[in-house]
Amino acid sequence: MPSKEINAPGQVAFGKSKPRPVQKLDWRNYIVYFAFIGVLIYFSISLFDDGFVSTDNLLNIARQTAMISIMGVAMTFVISTGEIDLSVGSTTALASLTAALAIQSGFGMLGGLVAGLGTGLIVGLINGLLITRFVIPSFLVTLGMMGIVKGMAMWVTDTAPVPIINSAFNFLFGSGDIGSVPILLVWTLLATVAAHILLRKTSFGRQTLATGGNESAARFSGVKTHRIKLMVFLGTGLAAGFAGILYAGRMHAGRYTFGDGDELSVIAAVILGGTSLFGGVGTVIGTLIGSLMIGTINNGLIIMGLDVSQQMMIKGLIIILAVAFGKKAMKN
């Protein structure tokens, strides 16, 4: 086969690479942003007289969604690897109690912080090791952990709440405002920015997406996929621990009911935000918006005077519609 020069006109495949526009921005990836803006506008108009748009109310939304947002940015990594963590809600409860107990026993604010975060890390470590060493699906491992940790949270004080009398702790981790900015909003933004940089700008983030995109290909490329998975579960553990501390600081107590059902809100926020449940595609900012959107809907429905049962149904419906709409748009 002589390599003669054959250059057909208009040849598509190979030729001098001509400059091409950078990947076009695809509005479908931003569906959650439009949905969020839509929800905001809707409530602003319909609930204008009820004070929905007041600064107070908007900051309140930020306070109410902080824990979900913070766990959400960590969950974005787990879901990006194609895994899931159902244990975050229970971990939150246990961490609020261990933090409260540490403070009650005189270890101070730092002691509370270490106990709460440590609790989260230990749960994350156990999850991660079971998933990577024993190759058990994360759904099962964390479903089991969800029960175990919840049980421990109930057992550790025999379901009694533990009050926290440490104003510095309560101020810094939940109740305080800096000027008029709630400290919870500050934590949320810090977590989001850090996680965004981690996912987009570091090799760890890149390898997280690679692991979820095609695990065996990632391994062939030298990605230590097990280590990555272990790290992302440590991440959700840590975030759940911190969320527990924030609940404790906000309510001035540790309590086993904190974080009840949060795992579902967290996962919903992540998926709404545009992270793929199948792994490989993830966005931290999207998760934040997803979380704010769920919070805004909650808030608006409450102001509208709907009762809890109606709220739950409408929230569920909106989540399904948003995801379905995003999926549909993705296909076309």
Binding site: G205, Q207, A210, A217, G280
Partner: peptide, 28 residues
């Protein structure tokens, strides 16, 4: 023979996966 590429990443991200050049801050 089985492709070792990640479909959800870009060409450049795939080519330099795990060997990305870093800025002085250690970011990609």
């Amino acid at each position: 023979q089985e492709f070792s590429l990640i479909p959800s990443l870009t060409v450049a991200q795939n080519i330099f996966l795990t060997r990305e050049s870093k800025t002085s801050l250690g970011l990609l």
